[in-house]
Design a protein around this nucleic acid. Structure first.
Lengths: 241, 241
DNA sequence: CGTACCGTTGAGCAGGCTCAACCGCTGTGG
DNA sequence: CCACAGCGGTTGAGCCTGCTCAACGGTACG
């Protein structure tokens, strides 16, 4: 006997993006309808993965697209020189695994324990071509990620390590669990990951952290939490590109 | 008396992107159907603009999306410090003007004389929600541009100026007019623009050019054409990230 | 409690930036 | 037709910052 599955709020995919058009508040909201979330949940599989687990590797056959329900994932690339460049950190309501010619362009690895939705690309394609409104939300999401990537490119263009790190903290602010206070920025990733994301060496990230503390802008509580002590001066440093 | 307008190949928008799924050749081809091109041409306006003309400014109200038919456009951002960061160069069959909350996130300026299609965002939205297959091609296009942006981020991560410039030439190779030979790379933009794109100073670009010539990898014929002299060694430099 | 791994700190080096002068082409006005 | 101004580009000198290499410290996990 089959009973309709109750797709409660935390049991179906969601997306987060700033829409194209002007909205009252400029909040990050591309809300899926319950029906769309059901459809996605129907074709997808809910997965729980432990921390530090590789989800897929660059150039592997791209059979799925993933949506993060909870936890943090990094998308990275191994360069011929052996360096690891982190292209993005993915949080709840983010999307990853977009392919090029049937192959993943990045590797993906969990940072924390993660819950994700694994959507088969072929079925997703069918669904998107059938539901143009859902697809429009995916379009907005990918566009959002494009802007995010451009922002990172600007970030990397900065000369000073402290400024880069500050910009990074600014970006992380609000991307994580909404329950956190705005002056407290959780940093689930390692310094190494941050270095890979900022295009700095591990040591430079460490020195930049020390400098931000010395200037009384930020206090690091352990390795995984940054507390912004002086928001105005911090914002000024961030803006001084 | 009304006669159906003959939308010939060069009189309607086109898009260029690498699709998600595996295709026989990994060529850049997301071909629009004639019908889709007609639809786009119907809502859009074909514009010819001279070189060095500003198309729109950052934060202006984003009423249109643009598709390049011919010529080269740059998308850039003015930083508080006064620096000009070039986010992307747009060529024929590229798309630009994607907004965030109804505002452009970049400024856009023509580099060469340009022909573009100006598509009203509201009408385009209606069209995309009506034609899911057309929208799917837009989705592929934006995803393509996301990867392009990630590639640029990796490019900027490099330490050596000569390597960055080489990577840039590699990226420009093939993006321009298909009639050009693969060893000849047209560079319509100024050194300043290249510097802004690479995150280098004008002088460093100049010195990097000199170094590539000194190492007999590239020969610059005038300011707007690079000739790759030694493709194997050039490729090796590009790959040595 | 021991052992990795992550992170910090220091010394010296290298590469890019800044400042500044100079070159060559273009376009303009006398 | 020529002279000059202006812009884009090149080249040089010196500084500054992040990288590399290396040793040490500290925290998480078995």
């Amino acid at each position: 006997m089959k009973k309709p599955v109750p797709y409660t709020s935390h049991l179906a995919p969601h997306l987060r993006a700033i829409p194209f058009l002007k909205t009252p508040a400029d909040s990050e909201m591309v809300v899926l309808t319950d029906r769309q979330r059901e459809d996605l949940a129907r074709i997808g599989l809910r997965l729980r993965l432990p921390a530090r687990m590789t989800i897929y590797r660059e150039k592997a056959s791209a059979d799925w697209v993933f949506a993060v329900a909870e936890g943090v994932v990094k998308a990275y690339r191994e360069l011929p020189s052996g360096k690891r460049v982190v292209g993005a950190f993915l949080f709840a309501r983010d999307l990853f695994g977009l392919a090029e010619n049937g192959q993943y362009t990045n590797s993906a690895q969990t940072i924390t324990p993660v819950t994700l939705y694994r959507l088969p690309i072929t079925e997703l394609t069918v669904l998107l071509k059938h539901d143009a409104n859902l697809q429009f939300k995916f379009l907005a999401k990918v566009t959002h990620e494009l802007r995010e990537s451009q922002r990172r490119a600007i970030l990397i263009g900065r000369r000073d390590a402290a400024g880069r790190l500050a910009m990074f903290l600014e970006q992380m602010k609000g991307r994580c669990d909404p329950l956190s206070v705005h002056e407290e920025v959780p940093l689930p990733m390692t310094r190494s990951d941050i270095a890979g994301f900022l295009g700095l060496s591990l040591e430079s990230v460490s020195r930049a952290s020390a400098e931000l503390e010395r200037r009384r802008l930020v206090k690091f509580d352990g390795r995984h939490l940054a507390r912004i002590l002086d928001p105005p001066r911090f914002a000024k440093l961030v803006a001084t590109v």
